[in-house]
């Protein structure tokens, strides 16, 4: 967590989201690459469109479109590496902890016994980058417990481990 801490004396703002004694596993840095490429692909079209429109029409005002797109792209380039670094998970005896976010932080505690199913997903770009996304589902749609950017072997290991633990602590709803 590289976020500046709250200035109030005696408190440590980051501590709530970073309890000691929890060994956080980071996600793969390849996630940064994949996300940046994905964002680049999405932004390329409006950027190119804006440039073409500005050049063809000759209106100086139209350059605002590619400028805005470029600014968004730069912002993403700054934010995504930090987001990826902020993402972490920890397997404990009875539950899985997932934390994420830089501006808007969340820390989710999912008990293994509450897991209904586990998804492992990998899109074409993810596969190219050699990463996969593991998502836990409970009976609640509010449970936002996804870990993107795992190397496939780790994703498979985590999936099997979660499934095994969920089965061991299985209970209805």
């Amino acid at each position: 967590m590289t976020e500046p801490l709250d200035a109030r004396p005696g408190t440590d703002a980051a501590r709530v989201f970073d309890p000691v004694g929890v060994a956080w596993q980071p996600v793969s840095p390849r996630l940064t690459t994949v996300r940046l490429i994905s964002a680049g692909v999405w932004l390329l079209l409006p950027f190119a469109g804006g440039v073409v429109a500005a050049v063809l029409s000759g209106l100086a005002g139209l350059w605002a479109i590619p400028a805005v797109v470029l600014a968004v792209g730069l912002w993403i380039a700054v934010v995504v590496p930090r987001q990826v670094r902020a993402w972490g998970y920890a397997e404990r005896d009875d539950d899985l902890l997932i934390r994420k976010g830089v501006m808007f932080r969340t820390l989710v505690v999912v008990p293994y016994g509450r897991m209904q199913f586990v998804d492992v997903q990998a899109g074409p770009l993810d596969r190219w980058g050699g990463i996969a996304r593991v998502q836990l589902h409970t009976a609640s749609p509010g449970t936002d417990a996804a870990i993107p950017g795992l190397v496939p072997a780790e994703a498979a290991r985590l999936r099997d481990r979660l499934a095994a633990r969920g089965e061991a602590q299985l209970a209805g709803l």
């Binding site: 932080r105 505690v109 449970t143």
Partner: peptide
């Protein structure tokens, strides 16, 4: 309880 979460936005962080 299915799962529990803690969340904090930038404003919330300022106010602790």
């Amino acid at each position: 309880t299915q799962s529990v979460a803690l969340s904090q936005g930038p404003l919330q962080r300022r106010l602790g």
